[in-house]
């Protein structure tokens, strides 16, 4: 049986615009340093790039510690953080590019080799919104189900659930 080369994910009305705005926000948050072809120039840009703000709980969740010992973790961060920031930015660009290519279609066409960047980006957006909604425990996550329409968090919660829905749709469509 031939595998489909493209997965169609339905995005209607304002949804492409909302998703693009969220993806742009994520890119601003990870603030990946620009990449040059020249390794030396690249190194200089990495060395002078502004560090991400680890006082922001969203950043801490997207770039968590790898080691319990602070010294080892600082070294890990020094060696890996720029790469991780660039990887998250590259994933986000794939998503933004596929949405930009939708035209008037009521769905976004996701080539199979874009599925992983899409899943990682949708998941990163869920994590970011969950941190903004101060979800720290399973009880917190469950409490989101009871947020009513008059709650100031209602819009954010709705987007959070929608992202979860898109993630599950894409996972089942990709049959992975």
């Amino acid at each position: 049986m031939k595998r489909r080369e493209v997965i169609r994910l339905v995005l209607r009305d304002q949804e492409p615009r909302v998703l693009t705005a969220l993806v742009t926000e994520l890119q601003l948050l990870v603030a990946a340093p620009p990449e040059a072809d020249d390794p030396l120039e690249n190194w200089a840009m990495e060395a002078t790039a502004a560090p991400v703000d680890h006082d922001d709980p969203v950043i801490t969740r997207l770039f968590p510690p790898a080691y319990s010992e602070p010294d080892l973790d600082a070294e890990y961060r020094r060696l890996t953080e720029t790469g991780l920031r660039r990887a998250k930015d590259a994933d986000a660009r794939v998503v933004a590019g596929d949405i930009a290519a939708m035209g008037m279609a009521p769905f976004v066409a996701i080539p199979l080799d874009h599925v992983a960047p899409w899943l990682r980006t949708l998941n990163a957006l869920r994590l970011a919104l969950a941190m903004r909604l101060e979800v720290a425990t399973a009880d917190d996550a469950e409490a989101l189900e009871k947020v009513g329409p008059d709650d100031p968090r209602a819009d954010t919660v709705q987007v959070y659930h929608w992202l979860g829905y898109l993630l599950e749709m894409l996972l089942s469509a990709a049959e992975v």
Partner: peptide, 18 residues
């Protein structure tokens, strides 16, 4: 393990090594 932990962080999983 550092490579794996970094990949897990790329996927948004909460991963550490010891």
């Amino acid at each position: 393990m550092e490579t794996h932990v970094t990949a897990m962080h790329g996927y948004g999983l909460w991963s550490t090594m010891e």
